[in-house]
Amino acid sequence: MVGVDDPPRRPQLRRADRLDLILDRDGPRCVWCGRSFAALVRPTTDHLVPRVKGGPSWLENEIAACARCNNERGHLTPVDWLAECERRGWQPDRTAVGAALTRLQDAIAERGGARRAARYLDGQLRRWS
């Protein structure tokens, strides 16, 4: 039951609508490998903080990634996956990843909750610096 003093809940967007918003924000390329989304490169939403690590399904925790990168990343941390992408000779968008980490940190501070994600994120931001 929702109390009088509880903040209003944000309506959950459909996955396709979230993907459209994320593509508008991040652009038509995979932030990890740099490939353009086209007929053969399917865009997906990738959780920066994986859901198994407490990552929320908020727009601030999702970035545009190709299906290959999303699948191959698995539960690797953003910092570790970024290093792997660079090792492979890909062109990850460091600026977009850094902005996404900061956006998520700000969203957690504003909304509260997501304690597990906040701890995970703090570790990633320390390594990012």
Rank of each mutant, 00 (worst) to 15 (best):
C30F: 08
V79N: 03
E60T: 14
L59Y: 13
D106F: 02
V31F: 05
R126Q: 13
V31W: 05
Q12N: 11
A67L: 01
D5H: 05
G113M: 02
G98S: 15
K53W: 04
W81K: 05
L13Q: 14
R68T: 15
I63M: 14
I63T: 15
L48E: 01
M1R: 14
L23E: 08
L19M: 12
A65C: 04
L13W: 15
V2Q: 13
F37E: 00
R73P: 00
G112W: 11
C69M: 05
G34Y: 09
F37T: 00
I63D: 01
V2K: 12
W128H: 12
I108S: 00
R42Q: 06
I22P: 02
R68K: 11
A39D: 09
A64M: 09
R25Q: 10
G112D: 09
G34F: 14
I63H: 07
E60W: 06
R111Q: 12
L82M: 04
L76D: 14
E110W: 10
E86Q: 14
P7E: 05
A117G: 02
T102C: 00
A100F: 06
D106N: 07
L23C: 09
L59M: 08
G89K: 04
E72M: 03
V49Y: 01
R35Y: 03
W90R: 02
D20C: 09
G123R: 06
P8L: 15
N61Y: 01
P50A: 08
C33F: 05
P43L: 10
G54L: 05
Q124W: 08
E62C: 08
R15Q: 14
Q12C: 06
R115K: 08
V41H: 07
A100C: 11
L104S: 02
A16W: 13
G54C: 03
R68V: 11
C85F: 03
L76N: 11
G123I: 05
F37R: 01
R88T: 08
D46H: 10
V97A: 03
L40H: 02
C66Y: 07
R94W: 08
V41G: 07
C66A: 07
R42W: 04
A107E: 12
D46N: 12
V31I: 15
Q91S: 12
E110R: 14
A67V: 02
C85W: 00
G3W: 02
R9F: 13
G74E: 01
E72S: 04
D24W: 05
W128N: 09
R119G: 06
Y120N: 13
G27V: 08
A39F: 05
D26C: 10
N71H: 07
V41I: 15
L76K: 13
V31D: 03
A107I: 04
R119F: 12
E110C: 06
A38E: 03
C85G: 01
S129Y: 07
I108H: 00
R73Y: 02
C30K: 08
G112E: 13
S36P: 08
D46C: 09
W90M: 02
R116H: 14
P7S: 03
P8Y: 10
L48S: 02
G123L: 03
H47V: 01
I108G: 01
L82C: 04
D17W: 04
P78F: 07
